[in-house]
Write a protein that binds this DNA or RNA. Structure first.
Lengths: 130, 130
DNA sequence: AGTTATTCCTACTTTATTTGTAGGATATTA
DNA sequence: TAATATCCTACAAATAAAGTAGGAATAACT
């Protein structure tokens, strides 16, 4: 599967943050309750989002996470990529392939990757909330 | 990865058959030599293509495989699907999900699936040979 | 009839990835 | 200093991907 639970959870968390985007921190415990995914499992995913600079985190009491931009300024591609690390439909594009030289199929995978990325870049968090 | 070695090998085999599409059977040993993938591993993939009716097989001496249509009449989507079984970017679409009811992300995955399938349906074997 | 070349079938193995869990360290606020 | 958070590291289980092995069935050609 190209997009795993990590990417999907990342998107769910971002949508939840967008729905509670009032300047206050939102704790992962609250998100986890609403999104109905294990808090512990979400931790790893959310920390990728934070490391990528997509959200701000605050530790300690009344800490939590919040968006750094408005929902319409996030596209889905950047969220999924931050969570998954990579997002390509075939491993040839990530890893490379020793037989890539005369490979008749490689250009197709590149095109497919473009089609996917362009689609996901065209969708914003705000679009999904409608 | 959405498209695994099975799907990619299936496409390579189909391209090889298209390049040797002279009415004679092409043995898997020959294909395997040219495509540089293990014959044993190719067997499983090719038998899916044959089961799906995309190619004809002939057993026994001077047996092998051949196309049943012209290269321009095969689209990539059907080849990949025959080999992979399914071809969707997220498991939600295959398996279903208990939380699908109010899921804000599910419509996105459906759209993404459409985008991918439409692209792959628009490409024929003949296109890849150019 | 027998030899050879081929696909077909089933089962197994290995490796990598996905999907989590557990426990505690660190920081912040009140 | 107590409570509430995030952060960090390591481990574990389940699933999927990638590849191997051995032989049975089939067909053609001597």
């Amino acid at each position: 599967m190209m997009i795993t639970t990590k990417g999907r959870n990342a998107l769910k968390v971002m949508l939840d943050l967008a729905q509670h985007n009032d300047g206050n921190n939102v704790s992962l415990a609250d998100i986890s309750d609403r999104v109905k995914e294990s808090q512990k499992y979400l931790e790893a995913t959310v920390s990728s989002l934070s490391a990528a600079g997509l959200i701000l985190s605050a530790r300690g009491k009344s800490g939590g996470y919040r968006l750094v931009r408005q929902p319409e300024e996030y596209n889905v591609a950047e969220i999924i990529c931050a969570a998954e690390g990579t997002l390509s439909p075939v491993s040839c594009l990530d890893v490379g392939c020793s037989k890539a030289g005369g490979c008749l199929t490689l250009p197709l995978w590149r095109e497919l990757d473009d089609v996917i990325m362009n689609f996901l870049r065209s969708k914003t968090l705000a679009d999904l909330l409608k």
